[in-house]
């Protein structure tokens, strides 16, 4: 019922999204990290567009526009501001997993999720929906993996954003999902980022040097 080209397109986009996820897991330079995130969000917007073309639901179009505006432009911009203010440009510390093992775990994860979903969705109506859900959940899990395997708060924030992307990816396949919900999710996301940024620098940023504070923060984190 769907245009085969669209299906192939979406599948290709999925592959790219996973690729960006892998890059986010490995990337040490914060600047590139944010760029990759922007690219990933752009790919998400493309998925929405493709689906919009298929279903004609304007919700998806709005979603694509919203994604581009917030995730491709605003959020990376804000993140870069934080990066410049704090003076931290690299996050080279990994916990629990090295980049290579993280990728391997990630692959295993995708397979596990795939096989679990396969059993549950036995009589699924929609092949693409199934694929979307697998990729979405995997992306969410990979985002979580980023959160716990990277040291810096900003990187963790990117991990969280990636999780959010995964969830949205899952969501776009159900066109009827009320638009207001999606909007709320994105608003929530923006608030979250603001909060995380403010928190990670402390409330009273005028009094003390930001750099020292951020360094302290990692130390404080031990307890």
């Amino acid at each position: 019922m769907m245009n085969p080209i669209s299906i192939i397109l979406i599948k290709v986009l999925f592959v790219f999204i996973l690729g960006t996820a892998a890059l986010i897991i490995m990337q040490k330079s914060l600047r590139s990290l944010f760029s990759i995130y922007a690219i990933q969000s752009l790919l998400m917007a493309f998925v929405s567009l493709v689906l919009f073309k298929e279903t004609g639901s304007f919700v998806l179009l709005a979603l694509a526009v919203l994604t581009v505006v917030t995730k491709v432009i605003i959020i990376p911009y804000m993140l870069n501001r934080v990066r410049k203010d704090s003076g931290i440009h690299h996050d080279a510390e990994f916990r629990y997993l090295t980049p290579v093992s993280a990728i391997i775990i990630g692959m295993a994860l995708i397979f596990v999720i795939y096989s679990s979903f396969l059993r549950v969705f036995q009589l699924s109506q929609d092949n693409l929906f199934f694929l979307g859900s697998v990729i979405g959940v995997s992306l969410a899990m990979l985002g979580m993996l980023v959160i716990f395997s990277r040291k810096k708060i900003v990187t963790k924030a990117v991990g969280y954003l990636m999780m959010e992307n995964g969830v949205l990816l899952f969501g776009v396949f159900i066109a009827e999902l009320p638009f207001i919900i999606e909007l709320f999710i994105i608003v929530d996301l923006v608030i979250f980022i603001l909060l995380a940024a403010v928190l990670s620098m402390g409330i009273d940023s005028t009094e003390e040097d930001l750099t020292r504070k951020l360094n302290n923060l990692t130390k404080w984190f031990k307890q």
Partner: peptide, 10 residues
């Protein structure tokens, strides 16, 4: 809380 809540969305 937020990371876990994302799974709720799923």
């Amino acid at each position: 809380a937020s990371t876990a809540m994302l799974f709720s969305v799923i």
